[in-house]
Design a protein around this nucleic acid. Structure first.
Lengths: 332, 332
DNA sequence: CTGTTAGCGCATTCAT
DNA sequence: ATGAATGCGCTAACAG
């Protein structure tokens, strides 16, 4: 039991009002006369009073806290995503609690238990693959959740994200349309991400007799991308274009190609996924799929707050993406 | 008032014990017979009971939550740092609440108020420059805080981080020792970071009559680094080495140099700061200052938990850094 | 518009 | 080793 700071009661005493009135003022209820309101506010400022969040949460059964479990934070596009969530939540006076699961459903489940134990009112999950225990627990406790970074019109759980399959398929076509026939495709660990699996499947779906794809799985890192590029080159020195399922991989490809003495796009065209900030500044600027990660974060955050506050229904949402044409792809 | 889930009372009823006993079991008190203990645990599992964190926090006046306010999350070294904090906190069963302030003390103050309102028990701040209001509030409320990413033996507030001045100074010497006499120095916005200011001052402190430094301030981004490199080249085409106060800037420099038709390190040597994951994979591999961001995060987290749990004193700590020699710097 | 009164779920004396 | 009683700080009816 630590020392207690000014409680609502102290403010009540100091102003000669009741705790109920103080509470009303603190919560912006309109049925308070302007004068008392000002008097209370002044007292709060003077006494440096801030409502105790635990007491408030206990009383209202609301924590104003939303949980997100992401595969990764070190790299890539997730930081933009998180920034979007945080920004939107902050505007609505909610807080974000974060956990990282490294693409492991088991870790994800453990993290979720902990966040649940912290009082999270809603869960932002990545992808559609999760331990059944997790979704069961959430359902039983009536804690709403959505799957993000993916979009699936059929999913009973709302999905907010991109059409990973379609974007990848479209990317291969884009390359094919420019005369490329021997493509390398580089992606991260399939086991850790159904988004990756969808992208790979999308790419493969665009192959045909005249279009060969060499898919390689690697670590989702610059190092991984570089290594994969070296692999592809060793198997087929005549590859003319490489599609990377992440800009981070594309950066590794740039480095790998550079070391091999090959030039982008003269020798090999490179196409990415994400449109990270530096993509436009790379040499040459990277042609990539722009994924609105920040918007996705804001969308999810706002849907949840609307849901929690007004009972608005959670809805699947497909976010727009597009190919940003820059100089890393050339037509043959 | 939402629907209530199993409370401690329900478990008590189900087991025929009192709430006090359940509470004892949940908190691992030893004065409970093994049998009743098991009985309770079993019931909890069966009923899917988890203690309500708000009630617990209200009762104990502890939230097991620590706040960190960082300048940035989008980029760079902060994600490694956060990952370190999160990892260590998680192990000790604490949680991290995060806010981003974009290097603006005003925003930082607002964020702190919010996190305080969430019940954060301790604050991890970046650098030593903050609104007086912030440190005052924290002090008055007796919420402990430390400054990180810096080290200052004189500071009354504990500092846990690096010797930014010394590392930068040392980097310039490293370059000078290899025969470089005309150096470019690129750093982020001074106004947003006293760490940056310290690095710049350190670099400048190593200059002398035979060693000229061309310092340029730019955005802390790949784009910023690239632009700065172009600037420097336009002012002094004969520059032989560039020191970047962040690896992110160095990446921009690589791209800028490449576009200018210059080679690293043959034409211009490049040295960075941070040792981000990709530094070793760049082409050529980047010589840079290794800053143990992950360790710093873990150190801060553990110090706080020790402090909160056992009253251990918070102590300033200098984290080791070193130059990682790779191929981006050559001796003249 | 304002005050009174009950809890919210839990940890914690103090008994036993 | 266990139980009964109390209060943490706040919000939410219900009165007036």
């Amino acid at each position: 039991m630590a020392k207690k700071f000014g409680s609502i009661r102290d403010v009540a005493r100091a102003t000669g009002l009741s705790t109920a009135t103080i509470s009303r003022v603190m919560n912006g209820a309109r049925n308070v006369s302007p004068e008392t309101r000002d008097r209370v506010l002044e007292a709060c400022r003077r006494m440096d009073y801030v409502p105790n969040p635990a007491a408030r949460a206990l009383s209202t059964n609301k924590s104003r806290t939303i949980a997100a479990i992401i595969p990764n934070i070190d790299n890539s596009v997730f930081s933009k995503y998180i920034a979007g969530i945080e920004e939107a939540l902050d505007k609505r006076n909610y807080s974000l609690v974060l956990a990282v699961c490294h693409g492991d459903p088991e870790q994800e489940f453990l993290a979720a238990r902990k966040l649940l134990g912290m009082g999270a009112e809603a869960f932002i999950l990545s992808g559609a693959v999760h331990l059944q225990e997790l979704t069961q627990t959430l359902t039983r406790r009536q804690v709403p959740y959505v799957f993000t970074s993916i979009w699936d019109a059929e999913s009973p759980t709302p999905t907010i994200g991109y059409d990973n399959f379609g974007i990848a398929r479209n990317s291969v076509r884009y390359l094919a349309d420019r005369g490329h026939r021997r493509l390398g495709v580089i992606h991260g660990p399939l086991a850790e991400s159904d988004r990756t699996a969808a992208r790979r499947a999308g790419a493969l779906s665009a192959a045909d007799d005249s279009l060969s794809l060499d898919c390689v799985e690697t670590d989702l890192s610059v190092e991984g991308g570089k290594r994969a590029m070296v692999d592809i080159l060793s198997r087929d020195p005549g590859v003319t274009a490489v599609l990377c399922m992440s800009d981070v991989l594309a950066l590794g490809v740039y480095f790998g190609l550079f070391e091999a003495g090959l030039r982008v796009p003269d020798d090999v065209s490179v196409m990415g996924f994400d449109n990270l900030d530096w993509a436009k500044d790379a040499a040459p600027p990277l042609t990539t799929n722009d994924l609105p990660a920040g918007s996705m974060g804001r969308e999810v955050a706002n849907q949840f707050v609307d849901h929690l506050e007004d009972g608005a229904a959670l809805e699947s949402r497909l976010l727009p993406s597009r190919i940003v044409e820059r100089a890393s792809v050339r037509a043959l």
